[in-house]
């Protein structure tokens, strides 16, 4: 097993407020890493540091290192566009573009310079199949994406992420707005995706973290309280705070 992303002593400040305190974490290839913790603990802030989404916020200051294949992504030489292509992101609420299903998926590749229709057709089908959506939308590729159900829209967003052929997929509570059936489909999908991608997922759903992840990282007040295999965290956590949180004693 090799490491895809290595985070070392990461501090993050919003102005004077320190949201992350010396966070260090190895993210392994082809594994699902779940980030759990109560609201405001820093897990969403942390996941956004992995593809520099926090750059969009002016007051953010970051120290420490995030090494992606050994290169510090916060190095001034680092290519953010390329980084976000390699490290894609799926958000809490499905956010399809107001375009057709096809165009939603083709959008990323087009921006990155692909214009050959045949190539795009192949890529769109491959991405939609990868997101377990192809069979449901293959006859309505030219219809507006906003007409899909919530669960389908979220899988479309996953397809859109896959279309630019990333290595890592970051997911920030990807099922919190979905019904149980759609949630189950996304969870099955994550199980499939990890064969080809590295997944990092923020979730508030303890059972979901238990079901789908290989490694679980518990954040508390901007610190990593405990990291371990998901089996260990859910069976015999070492920290009493972890135990209390996953058992629902606070949260």
């Amino acid at each position: 097993m090799s490491t895809n992303i290595v985070v070392k002593d990461l501090d993050l400040f919003y102005g004077d407020f320190q949201a992350l305190h010396s966070v260090s974490l190895d993210i392994e290839e082809n594994q699902v890493t779940a980030l759990i913790g109560p609201s405001g603990c820093g897990k969403s802030t942390f996941i956004r540091t992995l593809n520099r989404m926090n750059d969009l916020i002016d007051s953010v200051k970051i120290t420490g290192e995030v090494l992606y294949h050994g290169e510090d992504i916060y190095d001034s030489e680092s290519d953010v566009i390329e980084l976000r292509k390699r490290v894609g992101m799926v958000f809490q609420k499905p956010n399809p573009f107001p375009m057709s299903v096809y165009e939603n998926v083709a959008y990323g590749p087009k921006i990155h310079g692909k214009s050959n229709r045949t190539e795009l057709d192949i890529l769109v089908e491959k991405s939609l199949r990868g997101a377990a959506l192809w069979d449901e939308v293959k006859d309505r590729l030219d219809k507006p994406a906003t007409g899909l159900s919530g669960g389908q829209q979220q899988r479309l967003c996953i397809a859109r992420t896959l279309a630019v052929e990333p290595e890592v997929v970051l997911m920030d509570e990807p099922t919190s707005a979905l019904d149980p059936m759609s949630t189950s489909k996304i969870e099955d999908l994550i199980d499939q995706l990890k064969l080809n991608y590295t997944i990092v997922i923020v979730t508030h759903n303890m059972q979901q973290a238990g079901r789908i992840s290989d490694k679980t990282c518990f954040f508390l007040n901007g610190y990593i309280e405990e990291i371990g295999s998901t089996d260990q965290i859910f069976f015999n956590p070492q920290s009493s705070k972890t135990e209390d949180y996953i058992s629902g004693k606070f949260g």
Partner: peptide, 9 residues
């Protein structure tokens, strides 16, 4: 309740 950790044990 879907307990975990020491509750489950």
């Amino acid at each position: 309740e879907q307990p975990v950790a020491s509750d489950l044990r």
